[in-house]
Amino acid sequence: MAIHERSLVDPERVLRKERLVIDGIDVSGDWNLIILPRVIEDYDLSFLDEVLEQPEGKTILQCYQCSYCTASCPVHNYWDERYNPRHFIHLARLGLIDELQKRADVMWRCVSCHKCTHRCPKGVLVEEVLKAILRVMAKRGIIEEYPSKKFDKFFLESVYEYGRIEDGELLFGWIEKQGYQVVKDPILKKPIPFMGGVPEWLKQLAVKPIKSMNIGFLILNAKHMLFHPRTKNWNRFKQVLRKVMEEEGVFTH
């Protein structure tokens, strides 16, 4: 028997028997699969309240579980069946924190393509609601540090510091954070892209402009790496930004 959305059923609650006889009647074949009922006791409704407190999470109550979001989601369709936005919203509203925690390894995988938000017939900002759920989970410590969050923070630090970002610095800074060995020049302490333990594909990519004698591109990027592009009069604004982010509890410095 096929189960629609099989990933939502815990494997330990599914019983499948080769031969099944009930009251002396052989029911093997079509009726050999049983899903044990589940009794929910440990729900926590304060989770929903915390999601609603987030400015982006307000539309969560409009959801009527039609699953249009899940049907549109590229992560669900092309990567992992267990990534199911509709179900995450359902669990958050019921306050089933254990169930959310079981899915913590896929919950961060949203690529922010906004197909779900765009197509939602009820006007739920699905992508934003999911990010609000993730944030509450992180606050409660039921989801561990995940790669995209590390990257988000790394990005935010750069924006906070200079007001602008620089592609090369971001890329090689991230590579270094991943544990690869990045060689830096001794004087300015800036990374040298094509040396050290940088992944091979990236080394080749970095060498490409040199091979094609693209001097303009190299000079521009070297200039940006040396003198980080920054916004003028940023310091005063930075203080306000800091204050706001401290209130939200995201500042880590």
């Binding site: 922010s112 990005f155 935010l156 982010m245 995201v250």
Partner: peptide, 9 residues
């Protein structure tokens, strides 16, 4: 990236 971390920022 920033949107995922801070709304007001």
């Amino acid at each position: 990236e920033t949107k995922n971390v801070t709304f007001w920022g």
